[in-house]
Design a protein around this nucleic acid. Structure first.
Lengths: 217, 217
DNA sequence: GACGTCGTTGAACACGTGTGCAACCCTTGG
DNA sequence: CCAAGGGTTGCACACGTGTTCAACGACGTC
């Protein structure tokens, strides 16, 4: 586990990076350089000295968070025991709260990191769905990739609608319990939606395809 | 149909409001007062003279857009002929592009208007689902309100992931074709998802409920 | 015809932003 | 012991922001 707390025996570069991640998660991507600077007790000039510019810091943090989350996900999901593992992961999200918050903010700002993260999620989800299809618990799809993408965009996008706005602060300490209550509220209808078909027959699908045929793009 | 083009025989207040809506839709909610001012050929001071402050203009536009969309929706959806009506509505979204763009930006910024609009969408969707349940094309739900909300948040949130970022411009002229290609890409997997159940049995649902029972909040 | 009111403008202010620059301290190496 | 270089700071600049204020013109009213 990569430490985010930083017991200050870290490089100054690393301390600035961690402070930036925390500030972005808390205050949004528009957080000022001076706020980040005061968060880790340095001057604003030092940040641009180390990272060249604000954009440089942003890119560095993007890459770092993406790497951290990727290795975090892979280590947690390796046992792959299904729902229990996912729930356990939600439980101790507190340890990685700054990383999760940074990702949320990145998604919110639609930065370059957001697309990479979404692609990663889609690939992971597609893998899970494929495995589920093999074992028979997930129904096959005409276009597994598109289905995985739709599922990821659904859950991720819905999350964005509940997170504080781009300029409102996000309480990192309250994030685990907040996330839990959010999933508690959303899970029942979603699982129902994914277990029992919403539409009782394929009339709509047929109608849509017919309309598309009649009036091609 | 409420004119948004404004043939300039409108009140100055109205012209400023329309320009503001257009600018917000195009450049995001952080568009500057001076940009809006130059858009309709007045000075920045005049805007604050008419609306008190930037926040006043925002509230006024929020209320106006919400009202317009509401009456627009009700007039279009009154015949209620189902999918065909929805598709037709997508077709001529070009006429209301500024309104739609403003709503997207409002959703993106999670302003006060966004919650009101979402609630409105949820209510409308719940009504449709109830009607569909009666006629048998939509399966009943244990919690229709929660299901409607989940569906609305899914589609709305997914849309937010594809729209330009909060600071990137949105081409209002290209919006109709963009929206159409977006639905074309998303519709097939989504309709499949809603027609054939993703999960082949209720194992997951049961497991989730069991886990919630074992470790209550 | 003078007065006052309303719509409108340009300049100015205070503030916050990212960035550049000159100087400092401290350590390291000759 | 002196020089050098990297880490670090404060100051200042240019810029963009929302907002304020004094002034100006046109219009209607007494």
């Amino acid at each position: 586990m990569r430490s985010v707390e930083g017991i200050s025996d870290l490089t100054t570069r690393a301390r600035i990076r961690d402070a930036a991640i925390r500030c972005v998660a808390r205050d949004g991507v528009n957080v000022s350089l001076r706020t980040i600077a005061s968060e880790c007790g340095v001057s604003a000039s030092l940040i641009v000295h180390h990272f060249g510019s604000r954009a440089g810091l942003r890119e560095h943090c993007d890459a770092y968070v993406l790497d951290s989350i990727r290795e975090l996900k892979s280590s947690v999901l390796e046992p792959g025991s299904g729902v229990a593992a996912m729930l356990a992961q939600i439980e101790d999200v507190g340890h990685y709260a700054p990383l999760v918050g940074y990702l949320i903010r990145s998604l919110q700002a639609r930065g370059p990191a957001s697309r990479a993260f979404l692609d990663h999620l889609v690939a992971t989800t597609a893998g899970y769905l494929a495995k589920g299809t093999e074992s028979g618990v997930v129904s096959p799809s005409r276009d597994p990739e598109a289905r995985a993408r739709a599922l990821v965009e659904f859950s991720t996008g819905a999350l964005l609608l509940h997170v504080p706005g781009p300029n409102e602060p996000l309480d990192l300490d309250a994030l685990p319990t907040w996330l839990r209550s959010y999933t508690d509220r959303l899970m029942p209808p979603v699982l129902e939606l994914y277990t029992e078909p919403l539409l009782t027959d394929s009339t709509m699908l047929a109608a849509y395809l017919a309309a598309r045929e009649a009036a091609p793009s």
